[in-house]
Amino acid sequence: MTLTRKVQENRISYTVNNSRKFIPQYQLNINAINRCIDFAYAMSFGAQGEHRANRSGGRKVRSNGEIFCDAFNGKLGEFAIHQYLANQNIYLHEPDLEVYGRGRWDDTDFLYNGYHLSVKTTKHIGNLLLLERDDWDQNGHYIPNYESPSGGRYDAIILVRVDSDIVKLFKNNKKYYNNVITRNELDAMLNNFSCSFDIPGYADLASLQQIITNNQIIEQGSYLGQYTRMDATNYYIQSGNLTPISHLIHQLGETVTGTSKTNK
């Protein structure tokens, strides 16, 4: 299902019409949160690694505050999936916390018995799985990972919603657009930080290929809702069109018994 598209006075806007309500069923453990803080600080203010200052096809150059929030929320989502699947007796390697420099990043968020799994994280009010168009080819492969063992192919892209309010917290403390924050300042801001999450579903490779073939996009410069202007063109899938995570649990469970994919 496509978003509702409206054109008025040279302004293009999109509205979600097939959403899933956020249900904060799960709480991320504090050890995972602290490790996400360490990682995001190193990749931003700590200058030990480097995230792209702008998105693929995007124009906006991000501050270290923005990079921290993006890296933090993204890693929270990975730990959320790791924790959730462990509770389903599916045990993955821990999320990659290596601090990479420019031009290097982790290949696949998780690999389980031949299944390449990617995790995309959004805030709790989000209802879209967004994928920057310039990062994906017509076969649904992730272009930056062509030379990796996965070849850029993901069997499932899982959407996680986190109720972290990290962006609001940074903005309230006037740190969101900062490039310098001491670790003591950061720790004071994040004292007693907690995070709940839910998993509205996932998209398999066939679903991804379909939206690419259909050119299902939100254009750069258009608006999502009333206020959010898109910095880059993105493919999208609405949360209500995602496959429930229970289906993926079943598939991954089958790999253990050998009735589905075999190990690579």
Rank of each mutant, 00 (worst) to 15 (best):
G152S: 05
E98F: 13
T262C: 13
V162M: 07
V160G: 11
D204R: 11
S56H: 05
N145V: 02
G253R: 03
D134E: 09
G103R: 05
L224E: 10
Y26E: 00
Y236H: 03
A32N: 07
A47I: 08
E147L: 11
K264Y: 14
F72M: 09
T243W: 10
E78L: 09
F72E: 07
G253P: 01
R11V: 13
D109E: 05
I217W: 04
F68M: 07
D106I: 04
N127E: 10
L117A: 13
S246A: 14
K6S: 15
T15G: 02
R62I: 10
D106Y: 10
A188F: 07
N263A: 15
Q216V: 04
R52A: 15
W105G: 12
N31Q: 07
Q27E: 13
T259E: 14
Y223I: 08
A188Y: 07
Q138W: 13
R183M: 08
H82A: 02
S44N: 12
T243F: 14
Y146S: 12
N178T: 03
K75P: 02
V160C: 15
N191L: 00
K120F: 03
R161V: 10
V162N: 10
I237D: 08
S118D: 15
A188H: 10
N173T: 03
L208T: 14
I245K: 03
M189V: 01
K6H: 15
Y112C: 00
K21R: 13
Q216C: 06
V99H: 05
Y14N: 06
D165R: 04
R55P: 05
N214E: 08
T121Q: 08
N214M: 01
N178G: 02
I37K: 03
Q88D: 00
Q48S: 09
P244V: 11
Q251W: 13
I211Q: 10
R229L: 13
G114T: 05
D155K: 08
V16L: 11
F72S: 08
T228H: 08
A80S: 08
N34W: 02
Q226F: 15
Q48L: 12
L130M: 09
I181P: 00
I199H: 05
H141D: 15
K168G: 10
D204V: 12
N179W: 00
M230Q: 15
Y235A: 01
D38P: 07
N139V: 00
H250S: 06
C195G: 04
G126V: 01
S207M: 15
C69M: 09
N234M: 12
G225K: 01
N64Y: 07
D165T: 03
Y112E: 01
Y176S: 09
S63Q: 01
D137A: 09
Y176G: 07
W136N: 04
R11N: 06
N87G: 15
G77P: 12
L111I: 15
G221R: 08
V119G: 01
D38Y: 05
F197M: 01
L169P: 01
W136M: 03
S164E: 14
T121E: 07
T255H: 11
C69G: 09
T121K: 06
Q210S: 08
